[in-house]
Amino acid sequence: MKAARFDYLRPVDCAGAIAALEDASARPMAGGQSLGPMLNLRLSRPGCVVDISRLPELRRVEERPDGILYGAGLTHAEFEDGAVADPTPGFLARIAHGIAYRAVRNRGTIGGSLAHADPAADWPTTLAALGARVHLAGPAGTRELPVEAFILGAFETALAPGEIIAGIFVPRRSARARFGYRKSCRKVGEFAEAMCAVLVDPEGDVQRLAIGATEARQLVIAEAGTAINSPEVVDDILRAAGLAADPATFRLRREVVRQAIAALATKSQPEGQPA
């Protein structure tokens, strides 16, 4: 199928984009890796596509003492290649490398991934575990939210009409920080049936755990020390979150969480990644 007709605008700055998006039939597009297929299937029929991929503000990399603020339009490939600085010991490149396929990573953006809020996508769970914050710009000004507050549910975000993601702030972590990540996919590059990301940084006593690929928003445990050290606690957490109803799926989720925690020790690289 071919896309239904749409108009196209490329505002030169954030303000222009926000103004263009106040038209209810307008949709923002950055890398287009999610919107493109929806257009071709005629499931999305925006009156106007507002191209935000070239907004200077969305392409910035702003080093701050406590972390880095990334423009939302940076691509997965730019993270994968280390083309932008990383406030963690290489976690962002590692995660980016496992997202979909290189041809998609070359165009797809970190902001687009968050805006799409797929619970099984890599960035939402990873960034939630890393304690990242989303910077939003809209008709009412700017605001910021932690990732776990930004994502309200599966494909649901706190984005208000006309609002776009301007940037993502990722806090700095020490060289001793460890990141365990595991996803269970039916095939390479395909969506995850279960996923978990764990961050431990001895400096600053950070222990965060995020469970993704649920039917809803990521499950984020900000003080995850006990969970990391005792698997039964994870079971309780899954039960409490209503993720244990189906025994076979419960076992899957539990195993993936345990493997992510175990991966903290092994520093394992994702498949196909140079050591």
Partner: peptide, 9 residues
């Protein structure tokens, strides 16, 4: 379905 199609974004 969306998840299958767009997990990559």
């Amino acid at each position: 379905w969306l998840r299958r199609l767009f997990r990559r974004a």
